[in-house]
């Protein structure tokens, strides 16, 4: 047997506005495998990176939310397609990072892929489930429709080898917000960010428009307050913020009356549901006069 080929390791960077910048602060932090071996020096986002990410997310809102549900559904489905093609890569990365068996890592990737498929299918349906024609007492056509709330800051589930896993946790956190047309700024699993950053490569090469998902690896405790307090963020998903000072985050979010989804824990955290889609929507009710004459 010839000696093992020397591998070419990847530089894991942030994902902002469809690009992969290093942190403007120049900082990185060391990410190790579950066993403690070095895996990567991952970019450590700063508050200015958070600011840039919110800007990118805001700029992407009109295009993404303005796309048809059918279109968004296809784009999300495309993520599943590409992810499926890179199943082995993700599985290996997860197994090493989380210290789980290959089978468990495979299962996590598969579930993540299938979850994209599931949420993709909702894009052109959730409006029908959450909307309403309202029979008001008068000559009016009255329709209530859910619409995306805008920019959602997401703290993805944290902790290596816990919960549903770093990739599945990330997808559970992000996918439902995207279904309706929100854009997201996501803090991935701080200890196990690699699968999320690799997913960024999938997003970048799929049809997801730049800025729709922005990923800020680094210290969740450091970045989350900047996002929770950012006036141009419409909602905060504290799904994985249970170990942070999340009440303070919620208080910061109250300044501009952001919608705040509370932390969840355990393997069911962020379990797929229509409620996770509709939580990040606003119901708009439009009245039209009806007159024959």
């Amino acid at each position: 047997m010839s000696p093992a080929r020397l591998t070419v390791p990847k530089t894991y960077k942030l994902y902002i506005g469809g690009k992969f910048p290093r942190s403007e602060s120049g900082r990185v932090y060391e990410v190790t495998s579950r066993k403690g071996t070095f895996m990567a020096n991952v970019a450590k986002a700063s508050r200015k990176d958070a600011r840039d990410a919110v800007l990118a997310a805001r700029a992407a809102v009109s295009g993404w939310s303005g796309a048809t549900g059918y279109n968004r559904g296809q784009v999300l489905y495309r993520i599943a397609e590409l992810l499926d093609g890179r199943r082995a890569q993700f599985s290996a990365e997860i197994a090493r990072a989380e210290g789980v068996s290959a089978a468990a890592a495979d299962a996590q990737v598969d579930e993540a892929i299938d979850l994209w498929v599931w949420y993709a299918g909702w894009a052109d349906k959730y409006v029908q489930v959450a909307g309403n024609a309202n029979p008001v007492s008068g000559p009016f056509f009255n329709l209530s429709t859910p619409e995306p709330t805008g920019v959602v800051a997401v703290v993805a589930p944290q902790g290596a080898g816990q919960g549903s896993g770093s990739l599945l946790g990330f997808v559970r956190a992000v996918a439902p917000a995207l279904v309706s047309g929100n854009t997201a700024v996501v803090i991935p699993n701080e200890q196990a960010p690699l699968s999320a950053l690799s997913l960024a490569e999938v997003l970048a090469t799929s049809d997801v428009p730049a800025g729709v998902v922005n990923i800020l690896s680094g210290s969740a405790a450091e970045i989350a307050p900047w996002l929770a307090g950012h006036a141009d963020v419409n909602a905060v998903d504290l799904l994985g913020a249970g170990e942070l000072e999340w009440v303070d985050l919620q208080i910061a979010a109250a300044e501009t009356l952001k919608r705040v989804s509370p932390p969840e824990s355990g393997p069911d955290a962020g379990a797929p549901s229509v409620e996770r889609i509709t939580f990040f929507t606003e119901t708009k009710t439009v009245w039209h006069t009806k007159g024959l004459l």
Partner: peptide, 24 residues
Amino acid sequence: RAGVVWANTFNKFDPASPFGGYKE
């Protein structure tokens, strides 16, 4: 970006019609 939009009318309320806001 508003929770209630009235087209060719205004300030109409009805128990069957959801009411509430966006943003602040």
